[in-house]
């Protein structure tokens, strides 16, 4: 699959991999990843466009409260994220071992 994996996209994939079966909200993802809406939403749009992410409107839990848009991985998206996030982590560890990047960048 042709999909550009920027560091920001990897952050989003990592956030989705945390309790991957749960639905997630845009603002929560923004807080977890530290990405602004102008960066986060284009990534969500691309992931959804490639059918890696499914989207749904939340059923209104309380009257008067607007429904929110929710996102979670499709099975294909989950496979894609696991493969790419771990590959990136391995690559990053190799780079740390070679002294190309500082260890602080791959911790956490």
């Amino acid at each position: 699959m042709k999909f550009r994996l920027s560091p920001q996209t990897l952050l989003v994939l990592e956030a989705f991999l945390e309790q991957a079966e749960e639905w997630k909200y845009g603002y929560d993802l923004s807080r977890v990843t530290g990405l602004k809406s102008g960066t986060l939403y284009p990534i969500l749009m691309r992931l959804a466009g490639h059918k890696l992410l499914e989207t749904e409107w939340e059923a209104a839990s309380e009257p008067g409260r607007p429904p929110r848009h929710m996102y979670r991985f499709t099975p294909e998206g989950l496979r894609f994220a696991r493969a790419n996030v771990s590959a990136h982590a391995n690559g990053a560890l190799d780079q740390v071992a070679l002294g190309l990047i500082p260890p602080s960048l791959v911790q956490g």
């Binding site: 923004s30 602004k36 102008g38």
Partner: peptide, 9 residues
Amino acid sequence: LWAIGSTAA
């Protein structure tokens, strides 16, 4: 800021 970023997106 959220609204401005969203508009750009």
